[in-house]
Design a protein around this nucleic acid. Structure first.
Length: 424
DNA sequence: TCTGGGGTCCTAGGACCC
DNA sequence: TCTGGGGTCCTAGGACCC
């Protein structure tokens, strides 16, 4: 019995989710857009083959997309979140432990001799396909970094049928592949590090694998040192089975139209602070720090302005009234009226699971405000997010800056009104 | 006209303490 | 006038990931 790590991820996750509920999209080139329909965040293989790149601004490729008959969808995160939970549940049945790494990826612990590991990978792939309907690739190896690499190999070699277990591979072949794949394709090596490595004559995975660990530690960091060790088969990246406690809650969005006035920005901050407070309450967390930010476009020629300020909260809180008041007040101070802001955000950090001991003076006030928060939360849970709000957060009409979503698919799995109807 | 939205971890440097 | 050194905590910023 050998202990191994499997990295399972869904191919073109968002596109695959859309296809489950709209089979007409199968075989067609499909792209999914980011919030605000700003840029391309997911592409089907057919769209990749046509040369659409991830992160491409939609307005620049729109013509090309339409002229090639590609299907376009706005992102539907409720649907993807729900599909993700289903995939993770299936994977959990196959692992001795599981670390959910992202919305479409999970590491799981697996055991067996080389032959069994390859078969297991194939069984995982068909189980997810059968019960959720999305295609996955599986990479199996002794370390996380190598499991990621094996997954990469499975994806790029059609004859492997979506699975690659390193124990069944000829070491010579592994070496050949590693000496052809650029080091920046490796998990943990980005463009910056890649450029510096290249200056040292390290350009492929094989080069990095052969590099001197102590030199790497000195010139870079323990992060890259761990990567080198993992490439050589020594596991040194720990796995977090339990979802690490969240360190921060961020609510940040681009606007469909720029915000230039204090009144509009106050409206934005008021709503974002209340969304943040709602997430604190649903996660059972209290914040001790509040950051508000805004930014002008990096692509525009007007005044550049990136105001940002962090406030220490008087005591740990999840109170929407207090957070709204502070966020609005802080933003009034730091923004430049007249600058054309295209995004804004509220970050809650210094999170803790208990309200802790409040100073006596503010304690009573806190109590009163907490009750209001409970009431707000209850009303929203029952009647939806837009049913009630504080100050300018209680908007009956969509404001001018709210998100654009012109190509939405229905909330197939999370809204009764949108559940697909089967006619037999 | 239109260019995403989250997150994590590590490191260096300053403040402060004894 | 002399002007150490080690430790901790906090924060900002960099790099990376999906």
């Amino acid at each position: 019995m050998t202990e191994r790590i499997a990295l399972v991820d869904v191919n073109n996750f968002y596109v695959s989710c859309e296809r489950v509920f709209d089979p007409k999209l199968i075989g067609r080139p499909v792209v999914v857009l980011s919030n605000n329909d700003g840029c391309v965040v997911a592409r089907s293989q057919e769209a990749k083959d046509l040369g659409i790149t991830t992160g491409a601004p939609f307005f620049k490729v729109k013509q090309f997309i339409q002229s090639h008959g590609m299907a376009v969808r706005s992102s539907n995160y409720e649907l993807y979140g729900d599909m993700s939970a289903r995939v993770m549940e299936v994977l959990s049945r196959f692992g001795t432990w599981q670390e959910v790494y992202s919305i479409d990826e999970s590491f799981i612990g697996v055991q067996g001799n080389p032959g069994q590991l390859g078969e297991l990978a194939t069984r995982i792939r068909s189980a997810v396909g059968r019960s959720v309907g999305v295609p996955v690739c599986v990479g199996v190896a002794p370390t996380k970094t190598l499991a990621k690499f094996a997954n990469h190999v499975a994806k790029r070699n059609a004859h492997l049928d979506g699975v690659c277990s390193m124990d069944s591979m000829d070491p010579q072949v592994v070496g050949d592949i590693q000496s052809r794949v650029p080091v920046t394709d490796l998990w943990g090596v980005g463009a910056r590090t890649g450029a510096r490595l290249s200056g040292m004559g390290i350009s492929t995975i094989a080069d990095l694998k052969a590099a001197d660990v102590t030199e790497i530690r000195k010139k870079f960091s323990v992060v890259l040192q761990r990567t080198v060790l993992e490439l050589n088969g020594t596991p040194c990246i720990p796995h977090n089975e339990e979802r690490a406690d969240k360190q921060q809650i961020m609510y940040s969005r681009s606007f469909s139209n720029p915000v230039t006035t204090i009144e509009d920005m106050v409206e934005v901050m008021s709503i974002y602070a209340q969304r943040g407070a709602a997430r604190l309450m649903s996660d059972g967390l209290w914040a001790t720090l509040l950051t508000v930010t805004a930014g002008t476009s990096r692509f525009a020629s007007g005044e550049a302005s990136f105001p940002s300020i962090t406030l220490k909260l008087p005591s740990p809180t999840q109170d929407p009234i207090l957070l709204t008041r502070l966020a609005v007040g802080a933003m009034r101070e730091i923004m430049h009226p007249g600058a054309s802001y295209v995004r804004g955000g509220v970050v809650l950090s210094g999170l803790q699971p208990e309200p802790g001991q409040a100073a006596f003076g503010i304690f009573e006030e806190e109590m009163a405000e907490t009750h209001v928060g409970d009431v707000l939360g209850a009303v929203k849970a029952k009647f939806g997010n837009k049913s009630i709000g504080l100050g300018s957060g209680g908007l009956a009409v969509e404001p001018g800056w709210s998100m654009k979503r012109d190509y939405s698919s229905p909330k197939f799995t999370t809204d009764w009104a949108d559940i697909p109807v089967v006619k037999a």
